[in-house]
Nucleic acid binder design. Structure first.
Lengths: 322, 322
DNA sequence: TTGTAAGCGTTATCAT
DNA sequence: ATGATAACGCTTACAA
């Protein structure tokens, strides 16, 4: 006999009344509440969440989908878990390694009612195919999807990028290289457009030969600097996909005896803790706030309550590398 | 009518046979399997995992408990999620901010059958009180618990520490400072004992005035260097709680014009990606492998199958800061 | 190989 | 305020 049934038996009340006490329903006499509560405590009772989930159709779990975990993702993840917990939701992490089948498992988990909603950090499946899952629960994306079905809470990185460009040009750097992330992502496109538009507007050279793609890690950053040294041509400045790329470039530049910022100015992206430690100029990216926005979007659908998010902006943080 | 019932009706088979097909039981005729499978696909059927969990008593979810997320934890988390997924388990992250009540929620989730098992990364509640939860499911810890009820897969960090000490002394650094983590943790105790024992065995000075506690972040590392400069006394070498502390120290040392390693040698811990990028001497800590061990320990109880873990060891990685 | 029927532990809808 | 009863969707003895 389950503890629930024991409570029924010991208290003499019905299944329904016991349930009401558990869920703090007001329609219970003080007498019943006191008696049932006492027995619950005595039995060290705790509801079985699978039974609750089956009955209510809600798991109070949100899935978070990402290709890999890294420091940038970590900032989002940490804040999201926190805010979700505040609203009574747990967070399940799905790492996909960019494998479409593996990624699909997360979406199937929405369908099978394992999670109530999904946040996409990065995804590799075609948005067109993913949108069929929207019927099973709310989905919101950090990555820009270029798809109306799956809303994105991403900010336009081109805005931040322009801040960095203005800063560089003001300081006299005009030959600028760009380290992009995923070649086909909307963020990359947005950054690239910002760069080209800004340079043209200033009558400055657009150096497409200094575009590098798939530059994500500090190791990638190091490699590019080595490559430049081998080719014996250095830009005056470089805009990096994130701070970790900037760290790699800065470190390798020092190793190679390149003066920073005199011979090479470096700008990161995100304003991570380490960019401050290492004195890297960067663009502050309110990642945690975006995580909160993401949860609010889900909550809106799940909890039927609109929360107006605060307006977010990029900000240039000038340090020693420019 | 649920899809399950629809399948029963459409196929003409019973509830049990349909269930057998879903679960790939061999005791089904090819005919039945074919027919039921076809209908399942036609209906786009997927089992409701809450119902499965309620019925089987298993959620196929593991909870991971930690005070905060950081880069060191990330290495563990990433590998754990991966290996768990390989075995069909999802991972739920519980961040506690060192709040006991919040931490307890994770343990209550074990009791309420939300998760099948728990991995503790860091925990703040008294192990004595936590062990009452062991009856509800397997618990394994990365942090050393000093408690037989909750097994730990931690390695003895003193071993790694000694490696670093031998390296430093061999290179002529004898005045050594120690940056510890949590003052009362077993890891800290183990490192401190390794230091004191090694120094005494070599007839070298044990500098307790150069013990610093609660040094976790790069910012903490920077502060200590600033403090030393203010006090105008520098050790010859410093052993850091982790690589991020080392990064902070290295960065601040450069800022202050301190020559590394001539005036100050720096050793990190963990061998994170950035320690390589920045050329920091460190101790390789097989964190990912420990995550795998942790899962194996849980699996052993959950899946009734013993997996012999491979033996793990620390290794000194000499780079430019020593 | 297949079927029957009893769980699993709650919530929710009606009545009363 | 309380109770009876039917979901919720699946698994699993036990029988046949």
């Amino acid at each position: 006999m389950s503890k629930f049934d024991q409570i029924i038996k010991l208290s003499g009340y019905s299944r329904a009344t016991v349930s009401r006490v558990i869920n703090h329903s007001p329609h219970v006499s003080d007498e019943a509440r006191a008696k049932i509560t006492a027995i619950m405590e005595q039995l060290n009772y705790i509801p079985n969440r699978n039974a609750v989930s089956l009955s209510t159709g809600q798991t109070k779990q949100i899935g978070m989908v990402m290709a890999n975990t890294n420091e940038v993702v970590l900032a989002f993840l940490e804040r999201f878990i926190d805010i979700a917990m505040d609203y009574g939701f747990q967070t399940i992490i799905y790492t996909t390694r960019e494998d479409k089948t593996s990624e699909l498992r997360a979406f199937e988990d929405l369908r099978s009612k394992r999670v109530d909603g999904l946040v996409i950090i990065t995804c590799v499946n075609d948005p067109k195919m993913l949108k069929t899952y929207c019927q099973y629960g709310p989905i919101v994306s950090w990555q820009r999807m270029g798809n109306d079905e799956i809303p994105s809470i991403a900010m336009d990185q081109g805005m931040g990028y322009t801040l960095a460009l203005e800063h560089l040009v003001k300081r006299g750097y005009t030959h600028i290289a760009n380290m992009f992330g995923r070649a086909d992502s909307l963020n990359t496109r947005s950054r690239r457009e910002a760069y080209e538009q800004f340079m043209e507007s200033q009558g400055l050279p657009v150096r497409r030969d200094w575009y590098h793609y798939s530059v994500f890690t500090s190791a990638n950053g190091e490699q590019i600097v080595q490559q430049w040294m081998a080719e014996q041509e250095l830009p005056q400045a470089v805009l990096c996909a994130n701070d970790y790329v900037a760290i790699g470039m800065l470190s390798e530049a020092r190793r190679q005896g390149i003066e920073v910022p005199e011979q090479l100015a470096i700008v990161g992206f995100d304003d991570s803790e380490l960019s401050r430690t290492l004195g890297i100029t960067t663009i502050r990216n309110p990642i945690g706030d975006q995580a909160v926005h993401a949860f609010y979007r889900l909550w809106e659908v799940l909890g039927q309550e609109h929360i107006e998010p605060k307006r977010l902006e990029y900000e240039l943080i000038a340090r020693e590398t420019t």
